[in-house]
Lab assay of single mutants.
Amino acid sequence: MSIQHFRVALIPFFAAFCLPVFAHPETLVKVKDAEDQLGARVGYIELDLNSGKILESFRPEERFPMMSTFKVLLCGAVLSRVDAGQEQLGRRIHYSQNDLVKYSPVTEKHLTDGMTVRELCSAAITMSDNTAANLLLTTIGGPKELTAFLHNMGDHVTRLDRWEPELNEAIPNDERDTTMPAAMATTLRKLLTGELLTLASRQQLIDWMEADKVAGPLLRSALPAGWFIADKSGASERGSRGIIAALGPDGKPSRIVVIYTTGSQATMDERNRQIAEIGASLIKHW
């Protein structure tokens, strides 16, 4: 058993032996400061991975655009179909130039040979490839079927209504393609630790998130040596930015963190910096 498999397999085991986890309101002070700095709403939640207890939250039940963070949920739905014998990670999917949409750094290189379902999930999560996400959405029946999958998990909040890139429109008060921090954190925890997916599929999902290559300026920039993080970021119109993550010290995840912001006029660099500073406060007061 690899170190990674050891880590995921023991998450339920550690729940019975973990020390009490204490919240630190200092992080919420930073979240509120980020709102002031960005001139935008910020949603935040910090969840204990083992118990599911909410440690801190700010606007946990307000809607925010999901942006590309939905791609983790999408690959969770794909893995659920794999577990049920309805899909194979090794199945190759062929597509054409007409299928390519904006920001497809991986799929645009494989027009001649296509990509496997496994490769598409990797591209969608680690590189946020939009065509990969659309191709995967097609395999499960489209955005409405992803919403149905989430409903069956008990998440009646999170919804996907459109495809890439239209889902990134982020119109104020538009509930399409949105979630709430509390709903996203709970759903992510179920995917990573619950019985919905097999152990192998849970491991695969967290491996893809751990290999994320496009979230460096966010929480990863504040991470001390030896800490673990598996994450997925997102960005969209109207100053929207977000990240969902499982992270913790000693090389294993122990908390879920979800951060969303929307409605800012700030630059992408400034949005990144504010999220990184929230992460730094979280780690300092861990």
Rank of each mutant, 00 (worst) to 15 (best):
K213Q: 14
R7I: 11
G239C: 06
T267D: 12
K32T: 12
L79E: 00
E145C: 13
G226Q: 07
L160G: 03
Q265N: 14
S80G: 10
S68T: 00
T193G: 10
N98S: 14
F14L: 13
I93S: 00
Q203G: 10
P60F: 03
G52E: 05
S240Q: 07
E270V: 10
E87G: 03
E87F: 06
D99I: 09
I11N: 06
R176Y: 07
G52L: 03
E62G: 04
E164A: 05
R202C: 07
L192S: 03
N98M: 13
C75P: 00
R118S: 15
E237V: 08
L188V: 10
E277Q: 09
N173P: 09
G43I: 01
V101L: 07
P172G: 10
R238G: 14
V106G: 05
A182Q: 13
D161N: 04
E108G: 12
I256R: 00
Y44Q: 01
T112P: 14
L100S: 03
R238P: 08
A222E: 12
L218D: 00
D48V: 03
T198A: 10
E87A: 05
L160T: 08
S233C: 05
T126R: 07
P253H: 07
L19M: 15
D99V: 10
E62V: 07
A77S: 11
I243L: 09
Q265M: 13
I3L: 14
M66L: 10
Q203P: 12
I244C: 06
A183I: 07
F6Y: 15
V257D: 03
I243W: 03
W286V: 00
R81M: 08
I244D: 01
M180N: 13
G85S: 09
S122N: 12
T261M: 15
D231H: 05
R63Q: 05
P217I: 06
E277S: 08
V78G: 00
F14C: 12
A77T: 08
S281N: 09
N173G: 10
Q86I: 13
H110Q: 07
R162H: 08
R176P: 05
S96A: 14
A185S: 06
T267G: 11
S254I: 08
L10A: 13
F70Y: 06
E210Q: 15
S201R: 06
R238S: 14
Q274H: 12
E237R: 06
A40C: 10
G154E: 06
T187H: 06
I244T: 04
E195A: 09
S96Y: 11
Q265I: 12
E119K: 04
D33N: 13
R238Q: 14
F149D: 04
V21E: 00
R7V: 10
A211L: 08
L111A: 11
M180W: 09
R92C: 07
R92H: 15
E270D: 09
K213T: 09
F14G: 09
E237H: 07
K252C: 11
G242K: 00
T179A: 01
P224T: 04
K30N: 05
A222K: 15
R271K: 08
L205M: 08
E270R: 07
L10E: 05
L282A: 07
V117A: 02
W208A: 02
D83K: 01
D174Y: 03
E195R: 13
H156P: 10
L74R: 02
G114S: 04
H285T: 09
R241I: 00
P249N: 06
N173H: 12
S57R: 09
F17C: 12
L89Y: 07
W208S: 02
A266D: 07
N272G: 07
M268C: 07
M184I: 10
I275D: 00
A183H: 09
K284R: 15
L160H: 04
P249Q: 06
N168I: 02
A211H: 15
M180R: 10
D231N: 04
R41M: 08
L38S: 08
R238A: 13
